[in-house]
Write a protein that binds this DNA or RNA. Structure first.
Lengths: 211, 211
DNA sequence: GTCTATACCAAGATAGAC
DNA sequence: GTCTATCTTGGTATAGAC
């Protein structure tokens, strides 16, 4: 089905640029490295994209939509609350594992390049999504009202879940070194992380009757 | 007490370098910017430090020890477990707030410069500390045994707490934009974060009798 | 469209006067 | 120890042949 390897030079360049920029960050990226990785001449990068800035922006938009697409897999807000957060955490962590490099890139660039990065992400986010938080907040409030869970602040709950999902993976290379875990053990923690988080969160919020 | 402003040129340069490197990251840093900020000539940077790499390494070690020092304020492991994690979280979050720029720098550099950054941090960590995790793990196991808390995996508990502490602050500029929170509201969340996390964690782990 | 060659410039580094 | 001037490198960008 696929054309052999030739997806057109422009695509070649874009894909190479994606890899290099995600790996090195903006100021660490060299046009030469992109050219090498794309198997074309440096001059061609400028022929197609005019400048490094232009390439960077193109990649930034790609990364942003990949990231958000990966986070917005369909959630069913009518499920029981335990099921909902269980699904949410599982999908979320799955997405993070599949796009670890993008998350790491994102957290690297957001500080050194905030002015450039934030607008792109906000724009992509606003078209692609918009009101996931509102839906979630409403569902949390209903769950409290219907005594599925104890009273909690929805925003803090969402942030807590995201913290537990994201940080572990973003920090994993560190954890490996600090804890001197064998690779196999880390792999196991990766696999179990979703269940672990779901359990931790649910134990914290589930309704247990008036205390 | 303090000498007026002249702490010696070398110190001037180090302090300027610290600010610039933390702000821009390694590859974003320009020797000229350091020189300007230190109020000296570019050539002097090389006179004192030979190369940009050397300066970067010096700053890296500084940052590493500042970060760890900030995280290792005395903990009293003989306190009741609730008191212990309450203290731990409060101290930890306090340290993060006071050194937000260092944390952000760290999470930026660790990905683009892993090979350079990790060894420095591991070395500084190994001399300055060593066995905080072990002490914590032992205390958790005792708390489980003595039915202060439900059975939990100590490593996961530690990682969960750190996630909840760190991520919120590292991601705060994003949260502001995404949630369109007013600055005042964010400030309030900052102030309450330690209590919020303590509550969330404690509700999850506290012993409630055989279920 | 793709290449070679080269212009141009910014940045790290050094020489040498003071 | 500090400066000015300069070298060198390497990176972005362009001109022009094919």
């Amino acid at each position: 089905m696929d054309k052999p390897v030739d997806k057109g030079t422009e695509q070649q360049i874009l894909q190479a640029a994606h890899r290099v920029i995600v790996r090195r960050g903006k100021s660490g990226t060299r046009m030469q490295e992109i050219a090498d990785e794309a198997g074309v001449n440096k001059a061609l990068l400028h022929y197609y994209f005019r400048s490094k800035d232009k390439i960077y922006h193109a990649i930034l938009r790609n990364v942003a939509s990949e990231l958000f697409r990966s986070l917005l897999d369909s959630l069913d807000f009518s499920l029981p609350f335990y099921q909902l957060i269980s699904d949410f955490i599982r999908l979320h962590i799955g997405a993070i594992r599949n796009n670890l490099d993008l998350f790491q890139f994102f957290f690297s660039e957001i500080w050194t390049n905030r002015a450039e990065v934030l607008p792109v992400f906000l724009e992509v986010l606003s078209v692609s999504e918009g009101r996931l938080p509102e839906l979630f907040f409403a569902r949390v409030n209903r769950a409290v009202y219907e005594k599925e869970i104890r009273p909690v602040d929805p925003l803090n709950l969402l942030l807590n879940i995201i913290s537990l999902d994201v940080f572990f993976f973003v920090a994993s290379p560190l954890i490996i070194e600090l804890m001197e875990l064998p690779e196999s053990e880390l792999q196991r923690m990766f696999d179990e992380r979703a269940l672990q988080v779901t359990d931790f969160v649910w134990e914290s919020i589930k309704y247990r009757g008036e205390q």
